[in-house]
């Protein structure tokens, strides 16, 4: 199953994220059926598979939104299986959602400040009395929120409600919010969905810049062009089962993958997506 050579350059002891034989049943449906993979510092790993393969369910198990029916999830060696999402986030695991989950009525800046909740140093008394500590932490939060919005290249209005932004911009805000948490591991669920060609190119660049920060990335993505360009390793799911795990090259040639995606006869179309052929 797993057991592919680790990404180069990892000298640290254990993996950052270690998913061991994860299972999740919904009544009769085996949404995740024995998933194992690990991610190390600085990794970029993709989880791919047809719709309904169990990718989002796996993310939800890792981040605590679903309780796995079997298996374990370790973050830096700590067993976090079944912990509540906020406790997992406190371990430096951040995520975005497949269907945008912004705080639509709140300002774009406030959305990003959400990521800083755990780090802001102020309590209720500071807030009631507007102590210097309160003012300082608010000022820092605003600066930092602007920094992350710059980082993701947001162009729209930051002082207005997030729902007023166009779709592509909202996606950026969601990533900025996830980054503001200061994660060691960032899980992105279909970040390119609904983006146009130009936006996808910017996303590719953004993913590389996030990786350069030292944050490990795990992404679910359907855009094969993007996946093949950015991933160091790819895990392939089908009907909850892990059918491949390897480098983009290995996965591209894997017959089981081709079959899952295309049926037996049409192997040559594997990477015919909206890839920038540069």
């Amino acid at each position: 199953m797993a057991g592919v050579a680790d990404a180069p350059g990892t000298l640290s002891a254990g993996p950052l994220l270690d998913v061991q034989d994860l299972h999740l049943d919904f009544g009769g449906i085996k949404a995740v059926d024995g998933l194992s993979f690990s991610a190390h510092d600085g990794d970029i790993l993709s989880v791919i598979g047809p719709n309904g393969a169990g990718k989002t369910s796996a993310f939800n198990c890792i981040t605590g939104f679903y309780k796995p029916t079997g298996g374990k999830v370790l973050v830096e060696g700590n067993d976090i299986t079944g912990a509540r999402p906020s406790a997992i986030a406190a371990r430096g695991v951040s995520r975005t959602f497949q269907n945008l989950r912004l705080f639509g009525e709140l300002t774009v800046l406030d959305n990003v400040r959400a990521g800083m909740h755990m780090r802001m140093k102020q309590n209720a008394f500071d807030a009631l009395l507007h102590t210097p500590r309160f003012r300082r932490s608010e000022r820092q939060a605003t600066e930092e929120a602007n920094h992350w919005l710059d980082f993701v290249g947001l162009r729209g209005d930051r002082g207005g409600p997030a729902r007023n932004l166009p779709y592509g911009e909202q996606r950026r805000v969601e990533i900025a919010r996830a980054l503001a948490l200061g994660p060691r591991l960032l899980l992105l669920d279909e970040p390119a969905a609904g983006l146009n060609h130009g936006e996808k190119l910017e996303l590719l660049d953004l993913l590389r810049r996030i990786s350069a920060l030292g944050t490990a990335l795990v992404l679910i993505e359907h855009d094969m062009g993007l996946v093949m360009q950015v991933s160091r390793r790819i895990v392939v799911l089908n009907f909850g089962k892990q059918i491949a795990d390897g480098t983009p090259e290995e996965v591209r040639r894997n017959p089981a993958v081709l079959e899952a995606y295309l049926g037996k006869d049409e192997e040559s179309h594997a990477d015919e997506t909206e890839v920038p052929h540069d």
Partner: peptide, 19 residues
């Protein structure tokens, strides 16, 4: 702000480390 995050989307608030 955390209260409003919860009002807007409880899951997203949890994902941001808000108990």
């Amino acid at each position: 702000r955390a209260w409003r995050f919860i009002r807007e989307d409880e899951d997203a608030a949890e994902a941001m480390g808000i108990h």
